[in-house]
């Protein structure tokens, strides 16, 4: 499916946040001039079509005492799918992207404790026989993750 103008308005609105009230869809629907049922039906459709990747609480692992770390690997093309499966099998891998570069696999580890980052990276190195470069964030300049739909 291709999202129409109403779907796009929903995507834009819901990236900014969702109220914690007994009938939150009704509240957002009112703002957008929709009915609650239409809003929910559209979200269901977009979820099925995978236009919506996630809808729910976004956590800050660091605020919970945990950690995030961006990691990169240089994976030989012939082994790429195998290594992707090995990396993705770890629940601590929050997302993983193929990128056009010698370092062609970039993933984020999200763990509940700082120590777990090194441990998981070590396990991935042993499983794959490849080096895992770790780029822990030193400073964050902005996080207003939002894409105009």
């Amino acid at each position: 499916m291709t999202p129409d103008a109403t779907d796009r308005a929903i995507l834009n609105r819901l990236q900014d946040g969702f109220p914690i009230t007994p009938a939150p869809f009704a509240a957002v629907a009112r703002e957008l001039g929709l009915t609650e049922a239409d809003l929910i039906a559209r979200l269901e459709r977009m979820k099925s079509a995978r236009i919506l990747t996630r809808f729910g609480p976004f956590l800050d692992a660091e605020a919970m005492g945990g950690a995030f770390c961006l990691c990169a690997m240089a994976v030989p093309e012939a082994d790429f799918e195998t290594v992707a499966a090995q990396v993705n099998a770890h629940p601590q891998v929050a997302h993983n992207y193929a990128r056009a570069h010698r370092l062609n696999m970039w993933f984020v580890l999200a763990t509940e404790t700082g120590d777990e980052i090194a441990a998981v990276a070590g396990v991935i190195e042993r499983e794959t026989g490849l080096r895992v470069l770790r780029f822990a964030k030193l400073r964050e300049f902005f996080i207003g993750f939002r894409v105009a739909a």
């Binding site: 796009r8 729910g56 739909a149």
Partner: peptide, 28 residues
């Protein structure tokens, strides 16, 4: 439940309750 969600949001444990779109599906 709602009190706890709000408290976690205030403490920054929940950054926000929101939707993440698939950039590719949006033509990005």
């Amino acid at each position: 439940l709602c009190d706890r969600l709000r408290a976690m949001q205030e403490r920054g444990i929940i950054r926000r309750i929101a939707l993440a779109p698939n950039h590719y599906a949006l033509g990005m």
